[in-house]
Computed example of a mutant assay.
Amino acid sequence: MKERTTKYLQEKYPRAVVLSQDFPLKNQFTQATEKVIYGHVAIDPDTGVKHRLLAIPDLGNLGEVASVAQNLKAIFDVFAGLYIGMGNNLNPTGSSVDSVTMPYAPKILLYTNGLKVPIQSLISEFQNMGHQIDVVDESSMYQSIFISYGGPDEEAAGTLNKALKSVGVSTWFFPDDSIPGQKLHRMMHDGVNKHDKVLLVCSKDSLTRNGVLNEIERVLEREAKEGGSDILIPVTLDDYIFTEWNPERTDIADQIKARVIINVDPESENYKQDIDKLVKSLKS
Score class of each variant (00 low, 15 high):
L199V: 14
G211Y: 07
D251Q: 13
D205P: 06
M187N: 10
K225Q: 13
A157W: 01
L184R: 06
K197D: 02
K204S: 12
L232V: 09
G227I: 04
R222P: 11
I241P: 00
E154T: 15
D254N: 11
D177H: 15
Y240G: 05
Q255S: 14
V167L: 00
I252F: 08
A157Q: 06
D230E: 14
T250R: 09
E155H: 10
T250Y: 06
A157Y: 02
P152I: 03
D238S: 09
T171N: 03
G181L: 09
I241Q: 07
M188T: 07
P234A: 10
R209G: 13
S144C: 06
G158K: 11
P247Q: 04
Q255R: 15
L200C: 14
L213W: 01
N214W: 09
R209T: 00
N161T: 02
L184E: 03
A156K: 14
F173H: 10
S170N: 12
Y240K: 10
D254L: 12
L200Y: 08
A253D: 01
K194N: 14
L184Q: 13
N210P: 05
K204L: 01
L232N: 09
W245A: 14
R209D: 11
N246M: 14
N210D: 06
D254G: 12
A163Q: 03
G227P: 15
E226W: 01
R222Q: 01
R259D: 11
I233W: 00
V169T: 10
V235S: 07
R209F: 08
S178K: 12
D239G: 05
G168T: 05
W172T: 13
L200D: 02
Q255V: 03
N246P: 02
N193V: 06
N193Q: 11
T171H: 00
A156F: 10
A253G: 12
I147G: 08
T171C: 07
E223M: 09
A163T: 03
Y240H: 11
D205E: 15
F146V: 02
P152A: 14
V169W: 12
V201Q: 11
A258L: 02
T236N: 14
V235I: 13
A163D: 08
Q255L: 13
